[in-house]
Nucleic acid binder design. Sequence first.
RNA 1: GGUAGUGUGUCUGAGUGGCCGAAAGAGCACGCCUCGAAAGCGUGUGCACGGUAAUACGUGUCUAGGGUUCGAAUCCCUACACUACCGCCA
Length: 439
Amino acid sequence: MIDVKILRESPESIRESQIARGEDPKAVDELVKLEAVQRDLLQKYEELRAEQNAVSKKVGQAEASERQAIIETTKRLASEVQQAKEASDKARDEFTSKLSLIQNVILGAPSGGEEDYNVLETVGNKRDFKAEGFEPKDHLELGEGIKAIDVERGAKISGTRFYFLTGIGARFELALINMGVEYALENGFTPMVTPTLVRPEIMSGAGFTDRHDDEIYRMREPDEQYLTGTSEVALAGYHKDEILDLSRGTKRYAGISTCYRREAGSHGKDVRGIIRVHQFNKVEMFSYATESQAEAEHQAFLGFEKAMINKLELPFRVIDTAAGDLGSSAARKFDCEAWLPTQNRYLELTSTSNCTTFQARRMNTRYRDQNGKTKTANTINGTLATTRWLVAFLENHQQKDGSIYVPKAFRKFLGGLEVIEPVKDFCANAKGHAKVEGK
RNA sequence: GGUAGUGUGUCUGAGUGGCCGAAAGAGCACGCCUCGAAAGCGUGUGCACGGUAAUACGUGUCUAGGGUUCGAAUCCCUACACUACCGCCA
């Protein structure tokens, strides 16, 4: 939720932000009017209420003889107050429900839609498979070759866009998570295994509202929880209604959780393999920061993501996402996208957003500044590692014979494996991939 | 799932219809004392919104939402949470 103060004091900045996102700025003008109406009605109610309180107070002190007369007048007042309150509440509800539809005010993001991102940086070199003398295979073919991915049985068991990670695939997943957690620890994050079912107010507080029905799983009645698509949701709610001490730096958490996404709006997109799936695992960075810490923390998150991708020796680029492609909570978002040789395009591996005060406002998470004043906290989130990395890993590190090179920094998390060899038979242990470091 | 109890400010905790935004203590801030600190003493100390040049002032807030009443921390209902016991279960 955006700050009402900004709406009152500089609605122009919100208008501009909405325009950059490709939204109709008329909604902002309407909100300004609604806010004034709402405030006016609130004042009227409060005046009446003050009068009622004053008169009611006299009842207790009055002599028995005059008490009855006073009660008569307060009775009349009480019904007026009731009416004024109803009018005021109604105006407030209308205002807040419309206010909550306004997305966060952007912070330097380029304006425009999905294609209007800025490329900030390109890291590493794309491999030249022609020069190497073979046609690259895609991640699914490779994954099946080393018996790491089984989408057929995934579909049999759960439906399309589900998969099994088998043998070395399952080990890759655990290794990646372990590497992420170890790296997070080195950088002052507290690892957290989070709930993946959350109450509706946590879901909407984090900025995932019912508007996103086609993206979100929800429990059947009478259970009201949502399945979260990222541990960001649980971590954004973790400090709900709390006042944090951020005087010694940001509060950093690394959420480890399974993530669930309906992907109902993405028919026909990324249908092959495990690029876009309903369920995956993720290590997610999440930070609470003061106003002055927030942008630096966002940059730090981007740095952590780049470092992690470098550990896997993947070629990638960093983009500054355009306003129209930001989530409603984000004021700015950087994505790291790995090169996908078989599709001749980049694929999003990480995403880090600065949500400024948008999430924390509804969660009522605050901190005290140097003067002891309470202020709404800023939240920053970012992917540290996730199942999708397997796709980029397989495609970029494949060798002519279908084996997969394991980057040095990653080996210790994978039992010392240097190369993953294709295997004929399904094999749940490492014996089928026996090239171990040092041997 | 059932029954019972509990839910008060940063924390502990008093408060059973008007004198309660709330005793007391702790914590915190400031001052005195001290070379400095601790102890001691004194003063102050919630939040949100409206309002003001700033004060003043007003409204709301004792888990949340309803209700009763002229008036609710206090009485009633519902939800949520916690605790205990029972049941069930990995």
